[in-house]
Structures are given as structure tokens and as C-alpha cells.
Design a binder for these strands. Structure first.
Lengths: 177, 177
DNA sequence: AATGTTTGGTCAGCATTGTTGACGCTTCTC
DNA sequence: GAGAAGCGTCAACAATGCTGACCAAACATT
């Protein structure tokens, strides 16, 4: 199933437009992509990781803070779908965060089974500190690269996402405006 | 909550050049970057992860296969520096891979203390299967986005890397091409 | 109203992959 | 010959995934 595109990889003139060849699909270019994703993601998360360590939290806590902050009132089920982890794995980080006053639960209005999650002021404050950390880092990269490169970055990253992730991203973009 | 971002973030004409504004540095744009990195990296690694699971291996094994394949004859110390993990963490995945015949050790020529690591045929074959998996995925994204976007993607990812990672990437690019 | 489904919480156990600290070889360097 | 460097390994621990099982409250359907 992953072999359907195999044939045309090394055919420069096969794409739309004879001038825009597909040399960027050569092996060395794709190897570079692997390296970039490894180093890039590692250093992208390094700042928040350092900050979280002082609070005895991990990357999983950051993800909860981020996505609950992004979609206040999100249900547990929706959060599980976004994170793509099990209820137990989420519970282990979420419950302490509720007890420590970073996240609040509220019963759903239409469906009282649901627990709508939101950040408390304390949670929002921590999330913002973590955000600021990444903001500085990303801004540096964005500024160095320029607006056109940023647009390209977004297009490629979107392309690296599967259908489910694209759908979830759309919802996030809508609610986050 | 998602407060608009104070001072200069919402001032289109503040940057250098009235036409090329810095709107891509607004909060919502940087939030998007966080989402893209999360979903993008997750789905980028999903293919290899599925393949590795059948062989009772994890992402750590993939990283070893990738970087040893990228720099045959790499020393243990250099590999540790690239992965940025401890000797013990590496040893736990590397030793079984040597015993199972995926990786070979050779004493250094000038310095006999060093163990130069390389992939066996078996290791190279597995690495290629994993590579092909990601190749299909990345090619899809690259083709959808186009050459200009790919160039932008690379620029931004490089910008997201720290100085050490940039130096290591340069070595990889030299030996890899 | 009875029954079954959905949403969420929780217990117990396990795997992977990261961490520290300590110790012991072999080999290189001074 | 002494010390440093490169590598391997033991023991213990932490974070974050997983499965399977089971429970309660609320909803939905018959």
C-alpha cells in the first residue's frame, strides 16, 4: 500500500511544468528531511522541556496544557482523539493537573456525562510561559527564513499530516482563529 | 485567554518593508506552528513505528539504524553526541542490535579504543525498508507542496535547530551526499 | 420503565526509553 | 608509569506509552 508511488521518483520531467523538475525528491534530499525532522523537533521541544523539568512535569503535561488552552471546554474524548493515546495514559497526567489546580472540569450542558476541560488561571499562566519559550525560538527561525519560507514550511508540514490530523487541525484553526 | 498579542505583533507595517509585513509572527500563527510540529512529527514517524513494532523494535532502534547508515564507521561517542542520550540508553538498544546482526563493530585504525559502527547487510536492508516508508510519505508531502515550499520548509527547520545540531547536520550532509 | 450504549474514571501490570551513579577494562597521551 | 579518554556494564529509578478488566453515571432506544 505504501508502494504506489515508487516508479516515478527519479523522473525529472514527470511533474507539472518541464522547468520545475523534481530533483528535490532525490535520496539525499529525503535523507536530509529525516535529519531535519529529528534535530528540528528535538530542539523545538528543548526549551519547554527544561522549564517543565523544574515543575516535575513532562512533555505529556505540556501537550495537555496546549490543547486544552487551544480548545477550552474540550471533552475528554476529543482530547484523547487529538493526542492519540489511551484513557489511562491521559488520566495519569490529567488527574494530577486537576488536583494541582492547572485544569478544571465542568459537566457538559447538553450531555452531563461529559467533563469539559479548561485551564485555570494558574494553568493558563504556565501554558503561556511555555508558549513564550517556543515563541522566541520559532520567531527566530521564522525571521531568519522569511515569510515565503514560512509559508512553505506550513505547506510541507500539513502535507506530512494524515487525514485525521488535518481534520483536527482545521477545528483548532477555526476555534483558535 | 487567547489575548491578542500586545504591542508589535498586530502592526502590519512595523517590519522592514511595508509590503513584507510580519503578520506570520502573530500569536495565532505561532500557535499553528506548535500544532503543525506535533501532528507533523507524529505522522512522520507513524509509518516506521508500525513496521518496527513487528520486529519488536522501537524508535530508538530506528534512530541508530538511520545515523549509523548515514555515517558508516561512526564512533560510539559521536553517535551519542548526535542522539543526545546517555551511554547506557544507547547501550540498551545497540547491544541487542549487534547481537542480532544489524550492526557491526570494528576497532579504530588510529585509535584502537574506538568501536567504529557500521550496518551489516541485514541492518542496511531493514534501514532501507524504514527509509522507503518515510520516503513515500515525505514525497507525497513534497509533491503536494512544490519545490519552493520544500526549500522554505528546509530553511525553517534548519532555523529551529540549535547550534550543535546545525554543526552535526553539516557533517551529515557532507558525508551523506 | 427496562435495557443497552456511551462517556469517563480507575486498578493492576507491563514495555520502552530516558535518567544518575558507580565501577572496570583497554588504550592513548604525557 | 600515571592519568585521561573511549567504551561497556550493573543497579535503580522516572516518564509515558500499552492492555485488560471493571464500575458508575447519564443518555438513548425500545
Amino acid at each position: 500500500m505504501l508502494t504506489k508511488h515508487s516508479s516515478m521518483a527519479a523522473m525529472p520531467g514527470a511533474g507539472p511544468g518541464a522547468g520545475s523538475n523534481l530533483l528535490f525528491l532525490r535520496e539525499s534530499e529525503l535523507r536530509l528531511a529525516q535529519d531535519l525532522m529529528f534535530f528540528g523537533y528535538r530542539d523545538f521541544t528543548a526549551g519547554p522541556d527544561r522549564l517543565l523539568e523544574e515543575l516535575a512535569m513532562g512533555r505529556a503535561h505540556h501537550r495537555v496544557l496546549h490543547f486544552v488552552g487551544r480548545r477550552p471546554g474540550i471533552t475528554v474524548g476529543d482530547l484523547l482523539a487529538i493526542l492519540a493515546i489511551t484513557k489511562q495514559s491521559l488520566g495519569r497526567v490529567l488527574q494530577p493537573m486537576i488536583e494541582d489546580g492547572y485544569v478544571t472540569q465542568a459537566a457538559g450542558r447538553t450531555d452531563k456525562r461529559q467533563r469539559l476541560l479548561s485551564l485555570t488561571d494558574k494553568g493558563a499562566a504556565l501554558e503561556r510561559r511555555l508558549y513564550d519559550c517556543q515563541r522566541e525560538w520559532v520567531m527566530r527561525a521564522y525571521r531568519e527564513a522569511g515569510p515565503a519560507a514560512v509559508e512553505g514550511f506550513r505547506r510541507v508540514m500539513r502535507g506530512l499530516m494524515g487525514d485525521e490530523a488535518r481534520a483536527e487541525l482545521e477545528i483548532l484553526e477555526r476555534s483558535g482563529s
